[in-house]
């Protein structure tokens, strides 16, 4: 039943041209060059240090950001604003985490 619902949603996104972040509850990530990063629809900060930030996303995936001089400008239930020099952004899919 759950899978069916997911499939239906995916179909709706494709056919009706709806924004996938709203329908599928997907994270929306906005970056301004290597300086700023907005993460909407997140589920909390897992690791936060000067050079590495790991953010839990709404679809159980994770966002790994590496760089330097990181500052969390804002941290709200809906969004996180990260500032610093971003060098690397990695998206870790939910299946991989479950497996490893």
């Amino acid at each position: 039943m759950r899978k069916l619902q997911q499939k239906l949603k995916r179909w709706a996104v494709g056919v009706m041209d709806l924004p996938p972040d709203l329908i599928l509850d997907m994270p929306r990530i906005t970056m301004i060059g290597p300086l700023q990063m907005y993460v909407e629809n997140h589920r909390g900060v897992l690791v936060f240090s000067d050079q590495e930030v790991r953010i839990l996303l709404s679809n159980q995936g994770q966002l790994l950001v590496r760089g330097s001089q990181f500052i969390l400008r804002k941290i709200l239930p809906e969004e996180v604003l990260l500032e610093g020099r971003i060098r690397e952004v990695k998206y870790i899919e939910p299946e991989k985490i479950d497996g490893g």
Partner: peptide, 13 residues
């Protein structure tokens, strides 16, 4: 703090 909706900003490690 985030879940409790604390108003916090500029988190510097």
């Amino acid at each position: 703090m985030m879940i409790e909706r604390f108003d916090l900003w500029n988190v510097v490690p």
